[in-house]
Write a protein that binds this DNA or RNA. Structure first.
Length: 576
RNA sequence: CGGGGCGUGGCUCAGCCUGGUAGAGUGCCUGGUUCGGGACCAGGAGGCCGGAGGUUCGAAUCCUCUCGCCCCGACCA
């Protein structure tokens, strides 16, 4: 393509609304324009890159036997009501009415639709397994769209769904997706981590997320640098660090002491000269209307995800002050487990076996010392705490690290969550009805582009990996008015076209500086410049990432380019 | 939904406090000179100052309401 006739609106300055680097560069490099909060137009460059990403996804999905479909984005309310998600998804589901006032929604995923198709058509065990997928626009009314293309209300997703006869069959489908996803992200040139993920309150036995480390990310990942254990913080486990001070080794009785105005764990630690790890933190949560007393060690944080998983509650919220006073007769800051009855008490496993700790006295401005779990109160113990950086890894004892990441893909064993209630049945070999077991698997297509930019950029702009860059090579005559330069560039450009190389010819009537800056900004992996050394029969060949430039004879530069391209492409394929 | 910030030519912003004919840089158009890292000279186009209402002789500026965008939190397949 000839740059002079393309719409590539690059900007010199960073638009004020963009804060994360990928967002800034997507705007500056003319890839996207924003239409509204969380709604973007993908211009030429973004679309070219996204199409390359989709081609890779498609190839790998086809390679595991995936069958590509295209399902409707506009769905009738009925199927969502049938699965229960019409209500469960709440405001996140875009809902609308047609001219007859019938309820419709814009689909955020397609479990309901594929299950509807499957139950209408699948009759026999002989038809299983099935892997169905699509690459399609999804809609989610996010409460807070942000960070450019990272969290948006309309986005492209590759979503696939598998139907199997039994759990071992699902394992096979799941493993196929796992390895296909690895190949996809490797072929896109991304550095990623696979982590164990929370499978949610909706059941399901196993789930992995494919994450790219980035400060722009919204997820926190726990990883052991030694044994490779990696999990989403929501689900991660680790050994609690040893309490800073050992518990008093005696059979002591709880004893109140005055703590006027000392409400936080830190303040009480200051007063008692005992570390936070010697205290019990009491939190009151309301799970589906049921109040619960939650205990964690003073220096630990409650994981609401783990609590939700344990209680199977749909809605969990902190109790309000009024509710707390009614239940405990004291205000937050002086709450504790001693003397509480008629209330379910859940304690984090790290408190089991501890003795003589400090807790609130359920009387304003008083705490208790010498509180021993199991003796002074009874509780159910479970893993409820959020892992902290530096906690010893459960497997190998190495301190774990914590980092932010962006979720690129999520694979999920659904189990019978949809097939059972929606009545998907096939006949088995023995003539009896079987409910197929399902899996669902998603990849955020724009997130591959966005993470590619987050990972690969420098002060001059984008340095996307070759497989997902919008063009492979830019050919730049320094001065387009110079006939020799223009003709050399033209020749090379037409050679590229004939060879199927994705080249762009910068034939704009601009000064060289402008063309170089733009080429750097939009991130084309290779640049060939026809300039003043053309009179000596040489052109410059430049690698965008390394900035290495070499002078090459005009008549061999095309061969050189071909060699570099195939060498570079091979890098991404060989690792797969 | 709670907290904060911002809406002024395409982009970045000044002007607002202390009301009095709307500015700069950059980009864009025309002509000329220039041509290896965002050139220079000259001329020019482009803005209901987010919207509505109010105060005032007079509002970008003061007041009220409202809409939009961004950030933090809440929320969140």
């Amino acid at each position: 393509m000839r740059w002079s006739s393309l719409f590539i609106p690059t900007l010199r300055e960073v638009p004020a609304e963009a804060e994360v680097i990928s967002h800034q560069l997507l705007l500056r490099a003319g890839y996207v324009r924003q239409l509204s909060a969380g709604i973007y137009s993908y211009l030429l460059l973004a679309q070219r890159s996204l199409l390359k990403i989709q081609a890779i996804v498609r190839e790998e999905m086809n390679a595991i036997g995936g069958q590509e479909m295209l399902l409707p984005a506009l769905n009738p309310a009925e199927v969502w009501q049938e699965s229960g998600r019409w209500d469960v998804m709440g405001d996140n589901l875009f809902k609308l009415k047609d001219r007859w006032q019938r309820d419709l929604c814009l689909a955020m995923t397609h479990e309901e639709v594929v299950t509807t198709i499957a139950r209408g058509e699948l009759r026999s065990y002989k038809q299983l397994p099935q892997i169905w997928y699509q690459i399609q626009t999804k809609f989610r009314d996010e409460p807070r769209p942000k960070s450019g293309l990272l969290r948006v209300r309309q986005f492209i997703m590759k979503d696939s769904y598998t139907f199997d006869l039994d759990a071992p069959g699902l394992d096979v489908a799941y493993d196929k997706h796992y390895s296909a996803y690895c190949r996809i992200f490797e072929r896109c040139g991304l550095e990623y981590t696979v982590v164990e993920a929370d499978s949610g309150a909706m059941g399901g036995s196993q789930s992995h997320e494919f994450m790219v480390r980035s400060d722009a990310g919204e997820d926190l990942i726990v990883r052991c640098p030694s044994c490779g254990y990696a999990a989403n913080l929501e689900k991660a486990t680790a050994t609690p660090s040893t309490p800073t001070v050992a518990d008093p080794d005696a059979d002591l009785t709880p004893e109140p002491f005055h703590t006027p105005g000392f409400k936080t764990i830190a303040q009480v630690a200051e007063l008692t000269q005992l570390p936070e790890s010697s205290q019990m933190k009491s939190l009151v949560m309301v799970a589906d209307g049921q109040p619960l007393l939650i205990l964690v060690r003073g220096d630990h944080q409650l994981s609401e995800t783990k609590l939700a998983g344990l209680t199977k509650a749909v809605e969990i919220r902190p109790a309000q002050q009024g509710e707390i006073v009614e239940l405990f007769g004291a205000n937050p800051g002086s709450l504790g487990p001693v003397g509480i009855s008629g209330l379910r008490i859940l304690a984090d496993a790290a408190l089991q076996g501890r003795r003589n700790m400090v807790a609130g006295a359920n009387r304003d401005d008083y705490h208790l010392r010498h509180v021993t779990p199991g003796k002074d109160f009874q509780a159910e113990y479970a893993d409820l705490r959020q892992v902290a950086a530096g906690d010893p890894c459960t497997r190998c004892g190495t301190p774990v690290e914590l980092f932010k990441a962006v979720e690129l893909g999520h694979i999920f064993k659904l189990g019978y969550r949809y097939s059972e209630p929606m009545g998907l049945r096939v006949l088995g070999e023995d003539g009896k009805e079987i409910t197929p077991i399902m899996g669902s698997y998603g990849i955020g297509v724009e997130r591959i582009l966005t993470c590619g930019i987050e990972l690969f950029h420098d002060k001059d702009g984008i340095t996307l990996p070759l497989p997902i860059a919008p063009f492979s090579v830019v050919i730049t005559p320094v001065n387009n008015a110079d006939a020799a330069q223009r003709e050399a560039a033209d020749l090379l450009y037409s050679q590229c076209l004939q060879a199927g190389i994705d080249a762009i010819l910068d034939d704009r009537d601009e000064r060289p500086g402008v063309k170089f800056k733009d080429a750097d900004l939009v991130g084309i992996p290779y640049r060939i410049v026809a300039g003043k050394k053309l009179s000596e029969g040489k052109v410059e060949f430049l690698d965008r990432r390394t900035r290495k430039a070499e002078d090459i004879a005009v008549d061999s530069v095309f061969a050189h380019l071909q060699a570099r391209l195939s060498e570079e492409s091979a890098r991404y394929r060989n690792t797969a």
